[in-house]
Design a protein around this nucleic acid. Structure first.
Lengths: 360, 360
DNA sequence: AATAGACTTGAAACCGGTTTCAAGTCTATA
DNA sequence: TATAGACTTGAAACCGGTTTCAAGTCTATT
């Protein structure tokens, strides 16, 4: 079923059918309704390839998950982001093309073949900047390139628009929050310290320590280069268990690390939160239901995806955008794995349905 | 940069450039190398829309995640499946277009606009069959439709090819395995009993009980209609805690349920596995690292995705396929949440790196 | 040396839409 | 009633590829 078939069946030219479809030019009511009837009858929808070719627009957004494709997704927040993008795209009748793998291997191809109108990149790393730069150099005419939107922010990438979590600010708030609960001795688990967001968080932590007049003990900052977050938690636990003097609270760079860290501590007879408080990040669903329930930072992945999709649509339509860089700030949800060491009271959380959020 | 530009720059006709690109017809070496040089120089790649229009093939596979888009992804295995599809597609130079939402609202559109060469549907439900059937009726000419591949299997859908887990057989094996550990009193948590795979599992369970001469106690079969698996676990725990006589082992329909169920039991002072053994399903990464480590059924999501992508490619190319229905069987990984009640010995698992698998 | 057959190549048609352009129709005004 | 201007519509060009078809060139055989 093509536009010519519809035209023939409705007794008009294909130009007229096209005008009815796009609404670009008014069509007499009598013809219009005749065309619509035929379209409905045969459930006709214009061929995407033909339309894209003519309009020089594909109606598709590309999403690159810049991950090692050989490893599991373990990343709840990324999946929530994807869901946010998808739901928003669907309501705008925009298609989504996704690819998992390195930006370097994926991006040049999709730009050359013009299969999408814009690209959203998740999880860009420092080294990947070299892949992007030739695309925005002076040699390339603007017509030969497409908008690129990043889902993380760094100084190095700041020429590209972004929708990212405000990790630095959030990390600062978290330390202030813990200090408010009486914690002065705070440890940090940094998993994959080469990741940009881990570095941003680190800056926030250090700033908070400095401004709050707290010591930052290097011995309590463990860096783990592990893709598998679960063994990272175990490794970190073994490290802290071996120390003479331990922090009263430990901040992990994800809930997965926090949970496996906590599992290992519990198995070793350490009491959480009585001996050590634990704070995670991500608010993965299970974190609310483990025992003790995990105190964690809530990252609104869905919101990030939604904003990203909206911003990408604006970029594609060359609309004015207010902010080139949008930041999504986190909240802290306090559950049982955190002890207030001034009162030595732990919250009894497990049965509650609703989380009380603290926005820093 | 278009094919005509390349042709002009190389001093040949665009037919010749096309022949160099597709390899459809031999081209003299001298011209060929001239064309290739120009293509390389300008990093040219044919426009996807134009190519699709001409070839009547998009080189794209559609994936529909038939989920309520308003709810979180919580499904590790589905994400692993997506990863399997993606990795396999990428190596075959095939694009992936994904959509999250109901089949009914998504499928007719993508078929009408011909934006993909085939569709893989995840999580089809019983009611959705009505959306599919008009597409395969006699009224529709074969040229107007595209291959559809399902990622779950049911009697009702069996006219469609599928790549699915062998839930019925696996459930049977699991009961036999538990019986081998001395468990005669086994409970079941069925979350969302309207789902096809839950029904398939149920059949396997019942068959096993019957064939092994074990009683199936209806009181120990709790059905929970909850989208949120975590509250489901809590609810199930409350139910079993209130019973006079409890089973010695409980099988949950996912790790998430098992973990929140276990969390609730532990918080109530019940010992796992001494009082109750727990078995999950999915083998989500964290299940290996909680305390006690969860015994669970391993579903090879990645493998399912890989097979699905391969099968879809075969369907698109109208190749002969050996089996219309491919089944991926699970394995059991035994960790600490399961007690052998003949010896009353629990395995000490937590520190082990490698899982010992049992294939039923 | 003539000719059949294989090989190579470019022109033109085609895929299915959108849009420009020009022609035809209708209405309003002088 | 003649004519300007607005409105409606179809023909044709175009988007950027692939493929058919026919013509030209080259080699091999008689």
């Amino acid at each position: 079923m093509t536009i010519s078939d519809i035209a023939r069946l409705a007794g008009v030219s294909k130009s007229t059918v096209s005008r009815v479809l796009t609404g670009s030019t008014p069509v007499r009511e009598v013809l219009k309704s005749r065309v619509i009837k035929v379209i409905k009858k045969y459930n006709y929808s214009p061929n995407l390839a033909a339309r894209s070719l003519s309009l020089k627009k594909t109606g598709t957004i590309g999403v690159i998950l810049n991950l090692d494709p050989d490893y599991h997704f373990q990343d709840y927040v990324s999946m929530e982001t994807l869901r946010g993008i998808s739901v928003t795209a669907t309501t705008s009748h925009i298609r989504l093309s996704i690819a998992i793998g390195s930006v370097a291997s994926i991006l040049p191809g999709i730009i050359a073949e013009r299969s999408v109108d814009g690209v959203i990149i998740m999880g860009l790393r420092d080294g990947d900047i070299e892949t992007l730069s030739p695309l925005s150099s002076d040699e390339v005419s603007p017509a030969d390139t497409i908008p690129i939107l990043l889902l993380n922010y760094s100084q190095e990438f700041k020429s590209y628009p972004s929708v990212a979590f405000s990790h630095e600010k959030d990390a600062y708030s978290l330390i202030r929050y813990l200090a408010g609960k009486g914690h002065k001795d705070i440890g940090i688990i940094e998993c994959s310290p080469e990741l940009i967001y881990i570095q941003n968080r680190k800056r926030g932590f250090l700033n908070a320590f400095k401004n709050l007049g707290m010591d930052f003990n290097d011995e309590w900052d463990i860096k783990i280069n592990k893709v598998n977050e679960n063994t990272a938690g175990k490794e970190a636990a073994d490290y802290f268990l071996a120390l003479q003097r331990r922090p009263t609270a430990i901040v992990a760079s994800s809930d997965n690390i926090a949970l496996s860290f906590m599992g290992r501590l519990l198995a070793s007879g350490v009491k959480v939160p009585e001996d050590i408080s634990i704070v995670g990040m991500d608010n993965i669903p299970i974190s609310k239901y483990v025992h003790p329930a995990l105190t964690t930072e809530v990252l609104d992945g869905f919101g990030r995806g939604k904003k990203a999709c909206q911003m990408m649509c604006a970029l594609i339509n060359s609309e004015e955008i207010d902010d080139k860089h949008i930041f999504i700030s986190s909240a802290i949800v306090e559950r049982d794995s955190l002890l207030d060491i001034r009162t030595r009271k732990q919250r009894v959380y497990f049965l509650r349905e609703k989380d009380g959020l603290y926005k820093g």
